[in-house]
Each structure stands twice: as C-alpha cells, then as structure tokens.
Write a protein that binds this DNA or RNA. Structure first.
Lengths: 335, 335
DNA sequence: CTTTAGCACTTTCCTTTCTTAAGTGCTAAC
DNA sequence: GTTAGCACTTAAGAAAGGAAAGTGCTAAAG
C-alpha cells in the first residue's frame, strides 16, 4: 500500500516535526530525497489519504496524525542503544550501592525528566496484597502513642493515636503483644475484620481498659492506606513544550496532573515498554504516555514518561527500557 | 488626609473589585453614596493620588493598588465571625476525636481550599530539633532490613537497608541494641557525628561483621531527612481565578508551586494571622498569602492560603484564625 | 508510468482603519 | 462642596488589505 519512499518520507516528516514542532513542507524535503517538491507532494497526498498525515489548514505543510505516530512507533522508528551522554547521567545511579532500589528508581526518573524535558512518574505498588509483619507501638506522651505497621514486603506506615483516657503503658504493651500474636501474617485487607471479629472478643480478657485501646487501634490499623505512592518529576516540563501555548490547554493538563484518579490512568498493565499515543493514553488527547511495569522480588510498580505526542519516541523508549532492565537486574542481585 | 466618605468609597471599590474582578466605575457607586458620578470621581482622584487606586488605562474604572489592599486590610476590613455555612463544614473536623491532630489540620485546610477556591498549604515542622526516641530494625529478607527511627515528638521515618553481605540476624539485633543504648536522646542533627565518633569505635567489639552493618546504619540514619512536609490543596483553584487568563502567568505560578524552595517562601514567621500582599509575599507579585504559625505541644508548623491579590480577605483571615484556634485548643486538651 | 515545472488558489498572519462603548477629566454653573 | 455637560481617551472588536507560505492541479517531459 505504501512504497518505500513513502515510508521514508513519512519517517522524515515525523522526525522533522518532532524536532521543530512546525508543519513540514514538501520543499523542505527536496534535497534529502533528491527530487522535486511536486513529487514529495504526491507522496504526501498518499500518506494523507491513508491517514498518517494531516494538514493544519488547507495550504499548510503536513503534520503527523495520531495514526501516523502509531505507525511510526510500530514500524518506522529504530530505537538504538542508549546514547553516551544519556548513559553517563544514569549509570552512576545503579552502580551506587548505597542507594536502595526505591531511591534509585526515583532518582533515575528524575534524571529522565530533566534530560528529556518531559514529565516522569513513578507509581509504587500499593501494600494491598502485603501481609502484616509486625505492629510496633511507641508511647510518645501520656496520651499519645505511635502505632507502626510493617508489612512483609517492607512497607512501613505509622499513625499517631491519641488516647481519650489515660491508659497504663503496661496495658498498651499487652495489647500490642496480643495484636502481634494474632495479626502477624494477616493480609492487610483482612486486618480490619480480624480486629473486629477475632481480636475484640479476646482483648477484654487481657486488657483492663480495653475499649479505649481497641478503638484507637481499630482506627489506626484499619485505616492503613492502600494508596499507592505517586512521584512526579518535571510536571512543569510539559508546559515548556510549544504545544502548550494556550491557557486552557495548560490549565487542563495541570488539572489532570493534580487529579485524584491519576494513578489509575497512569498505571502500567504491561511488562514491556509500551507507547500510548493521544487518545490511546486515556489520559489526555494531547499527550503520549510511555510506560512499563517493573518487578523486583519485593515490589512492583510503574514507571512512565508523559510528553507531547510529538515526543522523541526512540529516545524515551530506549531510556525506559534501560531503566527497567537496571531495576530488575539490580534488585535480583540483592536477592 | 482621607475623609470618611473617601474611606467608604475605597472600601466599596475594593469589595466590589474583589467580587467582580472588573474595574469599578464612578457611576456604579452613585446609588450607594447618593451623589453624582462626578463627586465620586473627585474622591477617586484623591484616592488615586495617595496611591490606593489605579487605572488599567487612562479612561478605565479604578482598581485597588497593592497599597490600597494593604490599607484595606489594615484599616478598612472588618473580619466578622465565621459564617454559618463555613462553620458547618469545618466544625465536624475538630469535634471528631478519631482524627489525630495532623489529620485534622490537613483536612481543614483541604476544606478551606474547596470553600474559597484558593490554594491552601500546610507546612509541617521539620524533625530537626527532635531527639531520637527509638531505633527499630525489622528484617524483611536475608539481605534486607528496615530501619525505623522514631523521635521524641512522634516523627517516624523508615529506610530500607540492603546489606551487601549476609549478616546474622543476631548480629543485627546486637547492633540495634547498641544503637538504642547510645543514641536515644540524641538530637537528630548530631546522630551522624555520634555514629562516626562514638559508635564506630565501639561497635567492632560487639559485632563481628560490624563494617557492613555500620555502613548500612550510617547511610540510613544520617540521611534521615530534615525536609518539612508540604501539603498543598487546590493547586488548580488558583488557575480558575480570572486573573490567570494568560498562559505565561499560569505557567509561572505553577512553576513556583512546584519549585523546591517553596517551603522557605511560604513558611510563617508570625504567631498570628498575617496578610502578605503581592510583592510583600516574596513569592509572586500576583498573589496574596495569608498565613500563620501554629503550635501544638508536640509540633509546630504553618498554615497558609494563597490566592489572588483580589482575595476575600475578611473571610480568609477569619477562617485561618478559626483553624489556628482550634488546632491549638484541641491539641492542648490532649496534653 | 513517474517526475517535474508552472501557476492559480487558499490560508495564516500582520497591519491598518473604523466604530462603538465605557468611563474619565475638566470646566462652569449651582 | 456638588453636579451637569462635554470633549477626550482607550479597549475591543470588526472589516479590509497585502505579503508569505505552501498546496493541488494540469500539462509537459523523461
């Protein structure tokens, strides 16, 4: 359907547009293809008819359509090895054994945001399917204690509990012991009901002033957040892209960045680096999201780069693949 | 210098402008002051000459100048009691004994952001002047342990430590015990040097494979962040204000919200609610920041509202005073 | 059958010109 | 001190014109 030169022209147009953000004219491709602008125009017409190119107005140069980008990503681009300068900035991170893996992930995506001028995101996993490893209680003052929950995968959460009445610290200890005895190994999702049905009937036997304590713990433990951690870097980078020159678009994208359900929109479903262009992103028609899940023995999450559709696809894909590989290799070593 | 009617006119203009965001004309004030537009104009002229009013162009209505707002805040506005509907939304928070004080603070500033359509901020205190209360270590896997530090004021931080070599869990216990023995009560700022000069020489006597462990702990403990927690609500609200209708202003304010040193710019220095208008804010010429420090027995921090200079001053000041009072009363009860 | 030169045509973008509406400053009279 | 009246200014929007960029189409050349 599309001949070789047309493929080459499409590739050239997309790459030029990615560089300049301006419609590409037939004339500007003459030298490269050693033919006249009319010839290029004929091919452009074909490419427009199959839906890979668009015009901004009837007599403008061409810009890639969403399908054009899709075709480019699937068939035309050639992700190369990571470039020397990109490598240089990233390699120290994973070779630095001082950094724990989570810090390394965050740090590397910060750097990617800086290098590319796009926005990057790290979504940690939720502790939802973790089980409780330990409950620790530290008294801070006479009426205030800190409850700390540690899960088997190393998630830690803490919550201040204010006791409405004074409670003997020995009672607190006893209650904590009981909680540990009965809750260790319990999936976090079941802690709430276990407190209610298993612990509540028993705690009264052990602890004098149990009601106060029970309520406090109930509040604290059953509330342990299932929220995933979300870490953006370079939110503002997006706004520097020339496509964001209208106030409404800027407000719109910022609103989306701040919205509560961003996690669901960004979270990766796939174990390799995938590209979601415009509508495909289900986030915003004006952006492309490149993302992948990563897995370590103790954790999993998503790393993603959000940029304009006019994104340096080859580079971003290469970078994310590199990071993913490093995350997984480095965490395996540790195991 | 300024007579009574002029004061009244200034107040009326500012309040009208706060409502509508449009320059106020002399004619629009005729009914209210029962005189002709020419009379109002004469007074407007006076108010402009003393610097409280401005024109957007030579034949436009008047808008308040920064000095005008200042004068309004200092002399003209009359913060009333909190209104019924505002009260309604806030009062449940502090009467809810389940919520710990920090959650109550966050929650109430979220609500304020919603109610007012401005942006609110809670700056927690740093743990800088805390002392170490307890170090807890939980082994997660053979090579991974979680170190948890609890301070006397109830700050909790945790850090994953990956041991580069296998270390016997008994050794870890011993090391932890030693750390607790020697570090409890130490100001966090001194933990690093104490580790280096006091602990390092001793730990080798107690623990066989001390080097690995020592390095791990050193990394973990001396890195405990001094960062203050920053919690924004309604970042996007700001953008809804009609003054942010130009793309550069929007980008600018968003960049400032995202910038690293925001803490220093927002942090309160004063123990009462203060208003910083435009340049006074030292944050951005287009905004007003209303803020105050709050203190609880265990903590202190800043609560602030950021909005356009054309802000509902009376309401915001009243709201912040109300919140501050509640924070301090509720936390004292607990003591 | 493919490529190209040539040209008419269209749109954007920038200026210029008008017009209208809003609101002021000033003057002179009350 | 207040007011009516009027000239004057500006913003904002519409209309008109011209230059620049780039296309589509046609017909000729390879």
């Amino acid at each position: 359907m599309i001949n070789t030169r047309q493929n080459d022209i499409l590739k050239a147009i997309i790459e030029e547009y990615i560089k300049t953000a301006r419609p590409v004219s037939s004339k500007s491709l003459c030298k490269k293809f050693k033919c006249s602008s009319a010839t290029i125009r004929n091919d452009m017409m074909v490419l427009e008819n199959v839906g890979y190119l668009e015009k901004t107005h009837i007599s403008s140069g061409r810009i890639p359509s969403e399908e054009g980008y899709r075709y480019y990503v699937d068939h035309l681009m050639e992700p190369k090895d990571i470039t020397g300068s990109d490598m240089l900035k990233l390699q120290t991170i994973f070779s630095n054994k001082q950094l724990d893996i989570n810090d390394a992930i965050s740090k590397s995506l910060e750097i990617i945001a800086d290098m590319t001028n796009y926005t990057s995101v790290v979504l940690g996993s939720s502790a939802k399917d973790n089980t409780l490893k330990k409950v620790e209680v530290v008294p801070i003052s006479e009426s205030k204690i800190i409850a700390i929950v540690i899960t088997d995968k190393g998630h830690v959460e803490n919550k201040e509990i204010t006791l409405s009445e004074r409670v003997d610290s020995k009672e607190v200890m006893k209650a904590t012991e009981l909680l540990n005895k009965m809750l260790v190994g319990t999936p976090l999702t079941e802690v709430g009901s276990k407190l209610e049905y298993d612990i509540k009937p028993i705690i009264s036997n052990y602890v004098k002033n149990y009601e106060v304590l029970y309520n406090a713990f109930y509040e604290a433990l059953s509330n342990f957040t299932e929220e995933k951690s979300v870490k953006f870097s370079g939110k503002v980078n997006m706004l520097k892209q020339p496509e964001f020159d209208k106030v409404d678009d800027v407000k719109n994208i910022i609103s989306k960045f701040e919205s509560k359900d961003i996690v669901n929109k960004i979270e990766g479903t796939d174990n390799e680096v995938k590209v979601y262009i415009g509508k495909e992103s289900e986030f915003d028609d004006n952006v492309t999201i490149v993302k992948t899940k990563y897995k370590t023995p103790s954790d999993e999450g998503t790393i993603a780069v959000i940029g304009p559709k006019r994104m340096e696809y080859e580079r971003v894909v290469t970078l994310l693949e590199y990071i993913k590989k490093n995350i997984e290799e480095n965490s395996n070593e540790e195991k």
